[in-house]
């Protein structure tokens, strides 16, 4: 019940924040939904909650594979994502994800800084997941597949304070129904008992916003694959997981009226070191940071310099069922 109250409080805060903000807009193109579908699969009647804060700083101007010596432009995305997972059965779970995002744009020239910001509730994701292989029964492998829609609940008509429509990648939503495909595969006790390896992949098949400011707009289709290596340590009573993830991201070009938008799309590879602290079986927290290793972009793009993610996970198990035997009276 307390957790439900907490969720209610957070939603209320989000609503209040949205109401008070001057320009209710954000960057959905930059909303890290795909990389933050972090929950795997809940056991039967288990609730899992994952709250993630994601800071993405884009300050690298890259032409194809070459870094350009120009730091006059900066984009920053602050995202708070809230993911809920519920196990309908031991194998089937439902996941919902909501996010709030703030997008900032800074241009520094002649010692002046032009600053524009926007924020808002972004699109939502619903996923149905099915666990094909489980390690809960003592095995070493997990395999979960999921699929579902991304619902266009975020606004796409936000303007700045001169009432000018903001670019599509600064809008809160995408205005399109997308299909999201998700998979999780893991091998526990790999090589040695405390070491595990996992692969989380997400593919977002984007739809079209039929009228973004007068023309159809479609964000690029996105594939993300994360190869995660994890080793568990015990420090006193605390369980620590040292994480090392290699993230590959491929995005096709955005389209306006079915024509590719220049300087969009490309391939990225990041190394993501991280640490997870498991305070109890129900509660854990994770820190991680993306460091670009390689990128091959279409044209010239402002792209991620670094990214920081902080996540909290909380699990509620069902209360054990107590069977009361009838008392036999003599």
């Amino acid at each position: 019940m307390k957790v439900f109250l907490l969720v209610g409080l957070l939603v209320s805060m989000g609503t209040l924040w949205r109401t008070n903000s001057y320009a209710q807009a954000c960057c959905s193109g930059g909303v890290p939904i795909s990389s933050n579908l972090g929950l795997t699969n809940s056991s039967h009647r288990h609730w899992q909650f994952l709250a993630t804060y994601d800071l993405n700083v884009l300050n690298d101007l890259v032409d194809n594979e070459s870094n350009l010596n120009d730091d006059s432009r900066k984009r920053t995305t602050h995202s708070t994502l809230f993911e809920i997972n519920y196990g309908l059965t031991e194998r089937i779970a439902l996941t919902g994800l909501l996010s709030l995002v703030r997008q900032e744009r800074e241009v520094t020239t002649f010692s002046n800084t032009e600053f524009t910001s926007a924020q808002g509730l972004s699109d939502a994701v619903l996923l149905a997941k099915y666990q094909l292989v489980t390690s809960r029964t003592g095995g070493q492998y997990d395999l979960v597949l999921g699929a579902g829609p991304k619902l266009p609940i975020g606004a796409t008509n936000s303007t700045n304070n001169s009432e000018l429509l903001l670019p599509a990648d600064m809008q809160a939503g995408t205005g399109s129904w997308d299909a999201v495909f998700w998979s999780y595969a893991a091998r526990n006790a790999f090589i040695w008992p405390n070491f595990s390896v996992g692969l989380i992949s997400t593919y977002r098949l984007t739809g079209t916003n039929s009228n973004y400011g007068g023309l159809p707009f479609q964000f690029g289709k996105e594939l993300q694959s994360n190869l995660a290596l994890s080793n568990r340590y015990t420090v006193r009573k605390l369980l620590l997981d040292a994480l090392l993830t290699f993230r590959y991201r491929h995005v096709t070009a955005d389209e306006v009226a079915q024509n590719d938008v220049a300087n969009t799309g490309g391939q990225w590879v990041y190394v993501v070191p991280g640490m997870q602290f498991n305070f109890s079986p129900a509660f854990g927290t994770r820190f991680s940071g993306d460091i670009p290793l390689y990128r091959k972009l279409v044209g010239t793009q402002l792209t991620t310099s670094f990214r920081f993610t902080f996540a909290l996970q909380y699990t509620i198990k069902p209360k054990p069922t107590v069977t009361v035997s009838p008392t036999l009276k003599p």
């Binding site: 708070t80 524009t116 910001s117 304070n161």
Partner: peptide, 12 residues
Amino acid sequence: FASVSCRKEENP
């Protein structure tokens, strides 16, 4: 949430 919502707002 606060870090997202309480930052400066300096649109043109």
